[in-house]
Structure formats: structure tokens, C-alpha cells
């Protein structure tokens, strides 16, 4: 089954996000109150390793499992889009204590009430799609 590898990667992600408590509303509050290094340690480690991984892939022109070159699409430059979108995202992130990944991990963790936030997130995505041409980008 070709999709199995993605399920396994997701399981790995779900377990580690749970076990490092990154899916906890309390940890997100602690982060936004600058009262612990924990979340900064998680994101910081991932980013430092990510920068090294991306650099090595580009420098040695590494290829994926099908021998295609691994490419990175640069993001189109804009300020309002990323800043306004980012602020709206952040407002919700601190309130629910979960960004999209952890929302779904929380379902597995059997915090069923997070489904309300998931429904909200899908509705929010839909509204963005419906009105995007009227927003500054």
C-alpha cells in the first residue's frame, strides 16, 4: 500500500506531539506568557535541524525516492497577506491552544470537544475561500 508511509509519518507526528505535550492548551499558554522554554525548545530544535536539512538537500541536489530532484517553491512576497493572516491565526491559536495539526491529534487523544474547533477551522477555511478576492494579499 503506497499510502502507508504517510500514515506512519502521521502516527510518528501524533505520538511525539502528544508525548512532548505540544498538543496541550496549557503549553501554548505558557509559551505566550514566556514562562517556559519548552515550546521554544521544540520549535527551535525543529527549525535548526530543518535549516540544516534544507541546506544539505539544496547543496548536494539530493533526490527523492523516485529519483526526482527535491524542490522548494519560494513563497510569493507580500506583507499584508502574511501579517494579517498570521495575526488572525494567532488569535485563534492562543484561544483553542491548538494549531491545525494538534487539533487532529487531540481527537485521537479523545478530547472530543476539540471537534468544535475543527468544525470552526473548516468553516474558517471555507469563508476565506469564498471572500479571498476581496481581501488584501
Amino acid at each position: 500500500m503506497r499510502g502507508l508511509k504517510f500514515i506512519i509519518a502521521g502516527i510518528l507526528f501524533g505520538i511525539v506531539m502528544s508525548k512532548s505535550e505540544a498538543i496541550s492548551w496549557f503549553r501554548i499558554q505558557e509559551m505566550f506568557r514566556f514562562q517556559s522554554f519548552h515550546m521554544y525548545g521544540i520549535i527551535g530544535t525543529a527549525v535548526v535541524l530543518g535549516i540544516i536539512i534544507t541546506y544539505v538537500i539544496k547543496k548536494y541536489k539530493l533526490r527523492d525516492f523516485q529519483d526526482n530532484p527535491i524542490t522548494f517553491t519560494p513563497k510569493e512576497m507580500s506583507v499584508p497577506r502574511y501579517l494579517i493572516g498570521g495575526i488572525i491565526f494567532g488569535l485563534g491559536w492562543a484561544l483553542t491552544g491548538a494549531c491545525p495539526g494538534p487539533m487532529f491529534v487531540n481527537i485521537g487523544f479523545q478530547y472530543w470537544s476539540i471537534l468544535i474547533a475543527v468544525v470552526g477551522a473548516i468553516a474558517g477555511t471555507y469563508l476565506y475561500g469564498a471572500i479571498k478576492d476581496r481581501l488584501p494579499h
Partner: peptide, 12 residues
């Protein structure tokens, strides 16, 4: 909160 996360993530 979820709504803002979904809207903001796609906007950004």
C-alpha cells in the same frame, strides 16, 4: 478560535 485558525492559516 478554530474559525480564526482556519481562516488565518489559509489567508497566510
Amino acid at each position: 478560535g478554530g474559525f480564526a485558525v482556519g481562516f488565518g492559516a489559509r489567508y497566510a
